[in-house]
Nucleic acid binder design. Structure first.
Length: 511
RNA sequence: GCGACCUUCGUCUAUCGGUUAGGACGGCUGCCUUUCACGCAGCAAAGAGGGGUUCGACUCCCCUAGGUCGCGCCA
């Protein structure tokens, strides 16, 4: 057994970290030996999109299952009928697919299992491990009020815990609808052996008799989770540490049902850059937002895995490397702050490491999700694809996101006459046009249109006239791209091709 | 209010009693250079505070402070 109740002689709240080499509670190690296949689950409630914290939780569950040859299940916790939506369900599923996190079998819908949850509650009722409570909302509210006034923790006072069958019968005869409450231990303490948090001890007096079944007969989250995790054969519960106290309460349910408690791993939540709870402003966006921001799934995975988890100094992890290195002991216990700058840096690495072909595919696939993607989508044909591919080496090292990549590629699909950015216009106005006019015939005379050939001509011109290369290259850039920054200008000439290049140069030389 | 958890450079982290406290992002210098990037080289930057234990503490214990989470017939 992993949980047990001791006399109230232990120090409340004490957490003893397992010594090195014995980090896993012995009992756990024995119960989940190598012969037990690991089963993890990701259990989001579909009341909103898949946010970044949820995505990391899913990733950790997925990695752990992969690492130990097990499987991850997906359970949609839709018991809150008011707030659960189909849109949220598809957003979650879509988000996981995009992130490359798959799960075993069909998603399990918790609400569909309500009858089974109720059955468990009735079993506990029959065995005297739970009881009917007829306290009204008003009474409960009064209890909380009183507790607050006396500066006591708000707690159910157990007024129906030991009522006589007659009292219960009378209340039922009066037409009152009871909730079913767990008869939780009141003495001693409950221990959660957590693989991340260590051994966490809760005095039972602080954990009250939780509601199992609502007065309408529907199960509560607390019951549903335990019954589902048990029935689904979940061996490892990896979730946010906001559930840590729930783990103690849920332990009581496992205890009452006589079920084995799964291995618990409560991972710290992700905070915003100011240390406060993650809000939209901080990056608590749905994963779809990260897609729209132009991040690559592999980069986001890499970023997320290093948030709260580490393997020495290693920063970059391929998916396989992550799987091979991932384990619970290396998860830290302090909350991490979300940092867009690092994500962006990582994304840049992944973009540069991608083959031109793959990156083009990623860009094209993401186009529908990018704010300004339509402009390129409208121009997309084989010739445009070829240009994008040819320009990719120069483009990708100048972009940290697909959004920047798209922006950098704009000169490829913009129509003549090109709009000029102010600085580009300035470059042309300050003597740039003269260089263009001089260069135009030389370029036009080129027998073959390549970057190298163009470079030779421009360099020769620069030497002959004594003009610095930069003072010639910048006007070219301005005329060809409308900007003052771009990939190498000779590559631009080559990618654009002879006709388009000469036309753009002429546009500006004549202006 | 009660309880739990957390606290190493600005950020993510390494360290598992003995290190000039390491790496990465970001910042700053410089190199490269047709622009911007990329790349390369270098610099600055940390153990919340206070007590213990110990020959020795970032590391173990206690207290304080700050932060986060939880305390629903929400999940």
């Amino acid at each position: 057994m992993q949980w047990y109740t001791t006399g109230a002689n232990g120090k409340a709240g004490a957490r003893i970290r397992a010594a090195a080499g014995a980090r896993f509670p012995r009992s756990t190690a024995r119960e989940f030996s190598m012969s037990d296949a690991v089963v993890t689950r990701f259990a989001p409630s579909p009341t909103g999109f898949l946010h970044i914290g949820g995505a990391r939780t899913a990733l950790f569950n997925w990695l752990y299952a992969r690492r130990f040859g097990g499987k991850m299940l997906l359970r949609i916790e839709d018991t809150d009928r008011e707030r659960s939506t189909d849109a949220a369900i598809s957003a979650i599923i879509d988000g996981m697919r995009w992130l490359g996190l798959d799960w075993e079998g069909e998603p399990i819908y918790q609400f569909a299992r309500a009858a089974r949850h109720a059955e468990a509650a009735h079993q506990m009722l029959a065995e005297g491990k739970a009881y009917k409570c007829f306290a009204t909302q008003q009474e409960l509210e009064a209890m909380r009020e009183a507790a607050r006034a006396e500066k006591r923790p708000p707690r159910y006072d157990g007024r129906w815990r030991d009522r006589s069958p007659q009292d219960v019968a009378a209340a039922e005869a009066a037409g009152l609808k009871p909730v079913v409450r767990l008869k939780a231990p009141q003495e001693g303490e409950t221990v959660v052996e957590d693989r991340v948090q260590g051994r966490v001890v809760f005095p039972n007096k602080d954990l009250d008799d939780i509601v199992l079944l609502r007065s309408d007969g529907n199960p509560t989250y607390m019951l549903a989770v335990v019954v589902d995790d048990h029935d689904m054969g979940v061996t490892h519960v990896i979730r946010g540490d906001d559930h840590l106290t729930n783990a103690a309460r849920q332990t009581h349910i496992y205890q009452a049902m006589g079920w084995r408690v799964p291995v618990m791993a409560h991972i710290p939540l992700i905070h915003g850059s100011d240390g406060a709870k993650l809000s939209k402003r901080h990056g608590a966006l749905g994963v779809d937002a990260y897609r729209a921001l132009g991040y690559l799934p592999a980069a986001l995975r890499n970023y997320l895995v290093r948030l709260g988890w580490s393997a020495g100094d290693k920063e970059m992890f391929s998916t396989q490397e992550m799987i091979d290195a991932f384990d619970l002991p290396q998860i830290g216990r302090s909350p991490a702050r979300f940092d867009f700058a690092k994500l962006e840096n990582l994304n840049g690495h992944y973009m540069r490491a991608s083959s031109d072909k793959d990156l083009l595919a990623a860009l094209l696939d993401t186009l529908p999700h990018l704010e300004k993607g339509a402009a390129l989508a409208a121009k997309l044909d084989d010739s445009m694809r070829a240009k994008l591919l040819a320009a990719m080496p120069g483009l990708k090292e100048r972009a940290k996101t697909l959004v920047e990549l798209l922006d950098g590629a704009r000169f490829l699909y913009e129509e003549r006459p090109l709009p000029l950015e102010p600085k580009a216009a300035e470059t042309l106005a300050n003597g740039g046009r003269a260089h263009l006019a001089a260069l135009l015939p030389r370029l036009a005379a080129l027998p073959e249109w390549t970057a190298a050939a163009a470079e030779a001509v421009v360099r020769a011109y620069s030497e002959e006239t004594g003009a610095k290369l930069g003072s010639v290259a910048q006007p070219l850039r301005a005329a060809l791209t409308g900007r003052t920054t771009s990939p190498g200008i000779f590559d631009v000439l080559q990618v654009l091709g002879r006709d388009e290049s000469l036309a753009r140069l002429k546009d500006q030389a004549d202006a």
